[in-house]
Design a protein around this nucleic acid. Structure first.
Lengths: 196, 196
DNA sequence: CGCGGAATGGACCAACCAGTACATCCGCGT
DNA sequence: ACGCGGATGTACTGGTTGGTCCATTCCGCG
């Protein structure tokens, strides 16, 4: 089961829902196509399972970053840096989210599980942002979801559009040096956005 | 020909390369499948044509914004606002770029045309940024491509991930009010990034 | 031991779908 | 009128692919 999900995640990430082949998934596992249907019922059932598992696996484990122990600016910098790294290391997840958006989110909308799991990152942002405002460091009136949207956008795009972006600008955004620079710039951008 | 491309753009945008159906495209045009193969040779040939046409159609028409007539900050705000609107109004293009990135850019890499067309937005950014630095308004040392990456990321994500984002946060990012707010915030973010 | 339900293997099928064969037609130059 | 090359309609095909049928095996339990 776990093996099927792992292989299916790769396959769906590589080709999207329509590009993935059940036979290919079956061949790459030690089980058979028969078993995939036995457990997941249909290709779409498998896709939904992969989608749910992907979202579950990338949840920020709250507290793990110990943001509460840090002053607001450092906490935010750490959160953004972590998000950047996390996205870069979860490329399959990024691709699955992309393909789900191409399907206009119709499978995510079906999932009862995912819509329940709130996003811990929002709470983390809200908490440190409010501390920052209280300390007189951050400007008031900003929305935690909006800040999260910006962090996600910058970190997500860095992975999701790397191929077309690199081709057009003839650069290599995946080199350690480029990643380091981009990472620092994104952190700087978010900090400047919330600072007074 | 133009009709085929228009219909094919929609179809590929809706389902990606593998999700699109040649029969569906043929049925939606006044021509037949036979003609699609006559003109484009293969499904992939058609996809490449759509890809190239998409990139061509979204090129910023330089000068059209009259950025040179505006002070640096206003010029930048205008460029970002325009990019935001432009992306929002080119959702098919966004989807095709997404699906091309899912294919790891292999078709864009084949295109001889696209790699030649430099992106005018970069020149516009560089020009107004340098003016801003000269005027003492912007901080020095920033890279035009990096600024462009941020603008693109923020504007692109707003379209590309709208379905999953809205579902998870139970909001409606496509309402006029939400769009207006988000647009203003993105402009503010970019301005704060370049200001001294 | 033997029963019952879960797990599995492997051949099979029906629909789908990219791509083609063949014949025809249109329009233009001579 | 005629020839010729580009354009077009129709029917077809061969491979692919999601999904299933039937039969068998495995395993826990009374």
């Amino acid at each position: 089961m776990a093996e099927i999900l792992a292989v299916a995640t790769q396959e769906f990430a590589a080709g999207g829902l329509s590009g993935a082949r059940i036979d290919a998934i079956a061949d790459a596992t030690r089980t058979s196509k028969r078993m995939i249907y036995y457990y997941f019922g249909s290709k779409e059932g498998l896709y939904l399972a992969v989608l749910e598992e992907s979202y579950r696996s990338v949840r920020l484990t709250e507290g793990e970053l110990h943001l509460a122990d840090l002053p607001p600016e450092e906490a935010l910098a750490r959160l953004v840096g972590f998000t950047f790294d996390h996205h870069w290391n979860s490329q399959d997840y990024i691709r699955i989210v992309m393909s789900e958006n191409i399907q206009r989110g119709e499978y995510l909308a079906q999932s009862k599980i995912i819509q329940k799991l709130n996003v811990p990152a929002i709470n983390a942002i809200r908490e440190l942002y409010e501390r920052g405002v209280a300390d007189g460091l951050f400007r008031a009136g900003l929305d935690a979801i909006d800040i999260h949207a910006s962090i996600s956008a910058l970190c997500f795009f860095n992975v999701s559009n790397q191929y077309t972006f690199d081709l057009i600008f003839k650069r290599d955004g995946s080199s350690p040096k480029a990643l380091k620079t981009r990472r620092a710039n994104i952190i700087e951008m978010i900090l400047r956005y919330v600072r007074k």
